[in-house]
Design a protein around this nucleic acid. Sequence first.
DNA 1: TGGTGCCTCAAACGCTAGTTTAAAACGTCT
DNA 2: AGACGTTTTAAACTAGCGTTTGAGGCACCA
Lengths: 212, 212
Amino acid sequence: MSQSDTVQRILDAAEVLFAQKGFAETSLRAITSRAGVNLAAVNYHFGSKEALIQAVFERYLTPFCQALDAKLEELEGETRSGGEVPLEKLFTVASRLALGSHGDEPRRAMIFFRLSGQAYSQPQDHLRAWLREHYGPVFRRFLALLRRAVPDVPPMELFWRVHFSLGAVIFTLSGMESLQAISKKDFNQSVTAAHITQQLLPFVVGGIRGGG
Amino acid sequence: MSQSDTVQRILDAAEVLFAQKGFAETSLRAITSRAGVNLAAVNYHFGSKEALIQAVFERYLTPFCQALDAKLEELEGETRSGGEVPLEKLFTVASRLALGSHGDEPRRAMIFFRLSGQAYSQPQDHLRAWLREHYGPVFRRFLALLRRAVPDVPPMELFWRVHFSLGAVIFTLSGMESLQAISKKDFNQSVTAAHITQQLLPFVVGGIRGGG
DNA sequence: TGGTGCCTCAAACGCTAGTTTAAAACGTCT
DNA sequence: AGACGTTTTAAACTAGCGTTTGAGGCACCA
């Protein structure tokens, strides 16, 4: 078993367990047991539990943000010759990337949204600060394109509405499995990632534009 | 120190600390220390930490849900003679009640929204199930009025959009203090509860109606 | 005054957590 | 084959957790 193998197995196990039970409620013993590695391996390879949490985020977020950044640059290029990117297209691009930029099934995206939800509801802002520092620029780039897509919405209100949208996405996907049960019971219809994003798009677009 | 005094002091301390640091990260020792009572008092008066968490929710939610239920009944009465309650009015009523049904400043509402966020991102659905069981009927009553306010939105989509809205609210108010910092820096404008709900209303209304 | 419930208190219990240690195993190069 | 840096292993350590215990305090009524 090579080094990277152990590291990857730990990351895989941690990703799933953190999403399932939260950071505090997931013990290193549970992670290493699931990964089939020794308990001490986490502290050996990552240094601490906190560092492991950051590593889990980094492994997912870095490819996604690189892909998003490239795509946004492409879109900026298109609009340099006048016009702006439609609101729907911006969100479609982002969601398609979030769901499929890793080559694996969108199940991982779900797992990761759950993680994000827990990161945000976490008190200590170590993690939040770290996320903002590392991935803030892409977010601001997205926001700039957004501003040109809805020029009639004042920047201040747009800022808030983007956060509202983020909340809708993360919160919903965080509570997926319970919502899945409700939805199945009330509407006899199961829930897929594609299905949810399909529902999300009109809501977010309507919300950003504002109503009333 | 009378009994109810100790109980209330524990609830006060727990409410703040749970919101600040989460359920798992808040120890009974921290709670009793802040409350100025003995460690064993929690297990004596509430039985367990889990029961204390439920008690915190109950103390807040019961008055709110009673007030909301009464208000909804009143609205139903108005519409019995034909017509339906406008979307804006439904949400205005709900938000006003959430912010002011306790006689104290809306700061408590913020604390409570943080709690809700943590309850939802929590893995064990003991709490979620308990909340649903106790306060589900009011929610369904609200949903029924909503359905009549936007008859052109299919029930399935409305169901999702309501959850998206809930997510927007809880997520935003959960991350308040960090958003406060950003907003102050970028827009030189501080953030109040009234201000946020004012921003939320058009977003939620637009989102529920849907755009695109 | 003595007894009866309710409450408080300091101390301890059992347990699990993250982390550390030192020896053993492994792979690689001379 | 032997030495060396890296990785794995089992075991222990320290700390903090929720909970329990039994003695003590306090108000109230006979």
